[in-house]
Amino acid sequence: MITVNGKKEPFPEGMSVGEYMSRRNINPGEYIVVLNDEVIKPEDWAETPIRDGDELQILVMLGGG
């Protein structure tokens, strides 16, 4: 299992971050991707594997005070 934005999902075996983002229709540069507290830049998506138990966060900058 992996956690994505706090929700548990089945572990996408063999997928890289890039592949995972494609599956979710997320384009590079749209959001901030954080894997286990580390920011993964779009250029590194393809090479970064997702492992079982990983925590993925897909973040965005919104208005705030």
Partner: peptide
């Protein structure tokens, strides 16, 4: 200032 949030799809 801006805030960081989880994307709500």
């Amino acid at each position: 200032t801006v805030a960081l949030r989880r994307v709500d799809f």
